[in-house]
Design a protein around this nucleic acid. Structure first.
Length: 149
DNA sequence: CAGTGTTCAGGAT
DNA sequence: ATCCTGAACACTG
């Protein structure tokens, strides 16, 4: 199957996805977009259903050894739960700061659920907007009003 | 070399 | 208890 591209609305943001079959090449958050095709599991996840986009595959870190172990560990934290940068670092055999850098450069958020990685005390960061991370976590926690609060 | 989506220990308030 | 520092951590550009 050829490379697909499409976007889906998520609150004030748009989720742009580029994928082929069930391997996702890129996920990107932007303030603009236009309704289009995205993988079904992504659309349902964004709509608040309890499905996990981490069930898809990602091209991330295919040949990037240091980050590969980190991304693998991150994918193991399931829907609705979280892990700290430190815990992921311990599991991947690296340091918490490297985990932070790996999360920032994550080419496929949602598929590699970097929003589930939080600071020891606090939420940690998120690019391009911390509000997205908050919304996702609230959504996975089962809250219905996930925006602006 | 400086800079990270961190964390920890130490010390002062 | 909270609020500073300073330092170590393992990469990246």
């Amino acid at each position: 199957m050829a490379l697909n591209e499409g976007a889906c609305r998520f609150g004030l943001w748009w989720v742009h996805v580029a994928w082929a079959d069930d391997v996702v090449h890129r996920v990107r958050f932007a303030k603009t977009g236009e309704e289009g095709a995205v993988p079904p599991v992504v659309r349902r996840y964004i709509a608040g259903q309890r499905v996990d986009p981490a069930s898809l595959q990602s091209t991330a870190a295919a040949d990037h050894a240091p980050f590969a172990a980190i991304y693998r560990a991150v994918r193991e934290v399931g829907y609705g739960s979280t892990a700290t940068y430190g815990a992921i670092a311990a599991q991947a055999g690296t340091s918490p700061r490297v985990v932070g850098t790996a999360m920032k450069r994550n080419p496929t958020p949602l598929v590699i659920p970097c929003h589930r990685i939080v600071a020891r005390d606090g939420i940690g960061g998120f690019t391009p907007d911390i509000g997205i991370k908050r919304a996702l976590l609230r959504m996975e926690a089962g809250e219905r009003r996930i925006f602006s609060r």
